[in-house]
């Protein structure tokens, strides 16, 4: 009775510790994600490559599509 009550208590401490860990990991994820999102935004990329002389194209990419022909 006493032993099982104690083991339950340790489990509670364990859960508390782990749920904190979950929170921390989640926060680390969001932190990383938000930094990534800011980095991959076009405006920040434009700034970063500006001194290399690269800028967004003024013309859209051309896509050449071959009409599928039915073989006889």
């Amino acid at each position: 009775m006493i032993a099982s009550s104690h083991s339950a208590d340790t489990k509670v401490h364990e859960i508390a510790r782990m749920s904190n860990e979950v929170k921390e990991l989640r926060s680390a994820f969001v932190d990383g994600r938000s930094r990534l999102m800011r980095l991959k935004m076009e405006s920040s990329i434009v700034q970063k490559v500006a001194d290399k002389g690269i800028k967004p194209s003024l013309n859209p990419p051309q896509k050449i599509k071959v009409k599928p022909t039915t073989k006889n």
């Binding site: 967004p56 859209p60 896509k63 050449i64 599509k65 071959v66 009409k67 022909t69």
Partner: peptide, 17 residues
């Protein structure tokens, strides 16, 4: 407008290669 224009590729369809 320009950004959206340049982001969308212009498609040229050709008959054969």
């Amino acid at each position: 407008a320009q950004k959206i224009f340049t982001d969308n590729p212009m498609v040229d369809t050709i008959e054969k290669l």
